[in-house]
């Protein structure tokens, strides 16, 4: 995007913005109208509903959300799951991204792996979670294998535990981090690494002082994306929790689908949204200059 943003009237000839706007307006009319009507206004409706109680402006809904220990417990579970997921996704995804971009020399093999990486990404998270419901069941493949090779004496319960939810979410979100890190790695100039090696650095030093810092923006963008998606996930926790664990998005869903309390539900929505947006803003601050998410 051009840096020539004409926000400061002093630097812009008085006639310029209206002319530019007039020429851009026919192109902008439809998208702006649509996004205002079906995105901005609905969000404003949620916000204003959350600020109303008993027909009058009030912060009572927020008090109900924030003064109740239960909500903080659910928030803690939600963000603990999101943090664990993000950590696991990073530890698993980074090596795979590095391997695919730097070690695999055959284009055909890399392409095959990219296809296998996109396949789950293009499959609904309900289908993917369903796969884990089969795998993680008491007599599922995972338990059978662990018992079979003697790691466990008897099957353990995954479904209905935070571990089960984390396994499912890691699976759902892994492709995001591999793509974010991999695309950052692909743009790192290999001659920089060669120079580091020529100057006597060990491969590890080269990685740690040259490669890793250069693709840090991609990693940060990926990490923040995974964290926000994990914190706002509904389907995977709903299926793998077996009704035993509650995460914040489930509270929102309950309020709108069964109770239909738009005031209290609105306050819950805005609470989740604020947490998410703060994190995204943080990501933008840290990853600034790192460019676009891809």
């Amino acid at each position: 995007m051009t840096a020539a943003l004409t926000g400061d009237p002093a630097t812009v000839p008085a006639a310029a913005p209206p002319t530019a706007l007039r020429r851009a307006l026919p192109l902008l009319a439809a998208p702006v109208a649509f996004f205002v009507a079906f995105f901005a206004v609905p969000m404003v409706v949620v916000l204003s509903s959350s600020l109303m109680a008993g027909g009058a402006p009030s912060l009572a809904n927020y008090a109900r959300v924030l003064l109740d220990q239960y909500h903080w417990d659910v928030l803690a579970v939600t963000f603990r799951i999101a943090a664990l997921t993000t950590l696991a996704v990073t530890l698993l995804g980074y090596p795979l991204a590095y391997y695919l971009v730097r070690v695999v020399s055959s284009n055909a093999l890399r392409r095959g792996c990219v296809i296998l990486l996109l396949l789950p990404l293009f499959t609904s998270n309900i289908v993917r979670s369903f796969g884990w419901m089969i795998l993680l069941g008491r007599n599922g493949l995972v338990n059978d294998t662990l018992v079979g090779i003697g790691l466990l004496e008897r099957p353990i319960r995954f479904l209905g535990t935070e571990t089960g939810i984390v396994i499912g979410l890691v699976y759902i979100l892994l492709p995001f981090i591999v793509l974010a890190v991999g695309n950052a790695l692909a743009t790192v100039d290999p001659t920089l690494e060669e120079a580091s090696a020529d100057l006597g650095s060990s491969p590890f030093t080269t990685f740690w002082t040259v490669t890793f810092p250069l693709c840090l923006p991609g990693l940060i963008a990926g990490v923040i994306m995974v964290f926000t998606l994990a914190a706002s996930a509904y389907v995977t926790p709903a299926l793998l929790s077996g009704g035993k664990i509650t995460v914040f998005p489930m509270l929102i869903f309950q309020q709108y689908s069964t109770v239909f309390d738009v005031h209290y539900g609105g306050a819950l929505s805005i609470t989740l949204l604020v947490f998410t947006l703060v994190l995204v803003a943080l990501a933008g601050r840290i990853g600034n200059g790192g460019g676009n998410r891809s």
């Binding site: 609905p42 994306m225 929505s269 989740l272």
Partner: peptide
């Protein structure tokens, strides 16, 4: 970046 559950609601 908006949680889909929030937009859906």
């Amino acid at each position: 970046v908006l949680p889909h559950v929030v937009l859906g609601a």
